[in-house]
Amino acid sequence: MIRVRGLKKHYRVHKRPPGAAAALKALFRRDWQTVKAVDGIDFELGAGECVGFLGPNGAGKTTTLKTLAGLLHPSEGEVRVDGHEPQRRESAFLEKIMLVMGQKQQLLWDLPPAETFELNRAIYDVPKDVYRRRLDELVTLLALGELVNKPTRQLSLGERMKCELVAALVHGPKVLFLDEPTIGLDVSMQVAMRDFIRRYNQQTGATILLTSHYMDDVEALCPRVVVIDKGRLSFDGTLASLVQQVKPEKRLTLRFASPTTRAQVEALGTVVKFSAAESELQIPAAQVSAVVAKALGTLPVRDLNVENAPLEEVMSELFARTAADTRSTEAVR
């Protein structure tokens, strides 16, 4: 469904040090530099896949999404979405896709969202009966009710974001690019959005590429992740293999029936968090059974839990490694 080969997006921007003298000099002579927002990436997505596209700020995620959506022209490389070349912005292509941006809105601010939905219906030429059925489904799924008839400016951020999703989906896109769709939302609204995206993916078979800084979004929705850092891909695979590759150690949480000392806990492995009533340990995966047996035998354990390291930690570890690799490569050069 989506194929990216050797995609590069470079910008030429002018560079100016701070200060009045530099500003004056820049009026007459400008120094330019090339920013490599995306620097040669390859990946593919099959039809119906829901893939997390992750990376730190400025990694090139949004640039890639915008290129896939046809908003930006690649500097080099080949991009295909369902057989189309996005930058040509053919109607047949634009009717199949949508890019939802958590930080930008298309709803008409002074009018109810229903007016934007109707405008989009006309633009996408959706037959009225299909539109009504789809709108009913979306409004029910997102529990919007009469909110769609209230002026947008009177809606809360979460309500607006739900309406943004409806506006983006009235034409039933087959490919959905979601750029931080849950940003700024409270926890319950994030859960509601996640549920909705999962159901949309399952019910319509749409292909979804999602960027989010909330790892809960990724864990809940994406069996596979593609990681980009400084414009280059650093990982492409399942979430489980990402964790296995980057942070294979397990987290053992122990809750105690009576107070315990730090020394007792340290005897079992690396202590991540410690309190007299509850502690968290990091242990090699192969030693889980032995350590658990030892903990049960030597400490007043009331309850225990074994799980992978939090995805946030896995990601920051991965980004730190990529940064170190880049530094060492530059040093060799």
Binding site: R89, L94, E95, L99, Q106, I123, Y124
Partner: peptide
């Protein structure tokens, strides 16, 4: 300036007309 022209360019209709 704000980058919201994205929504116009994403639509399958002539952007100048829209």
């Amino acid at each position: 300036r704000k980058g919201t022209l994205d929504f116009v360019l994403l639509k399958p209709a002539d952007a100048q007309f829209l």
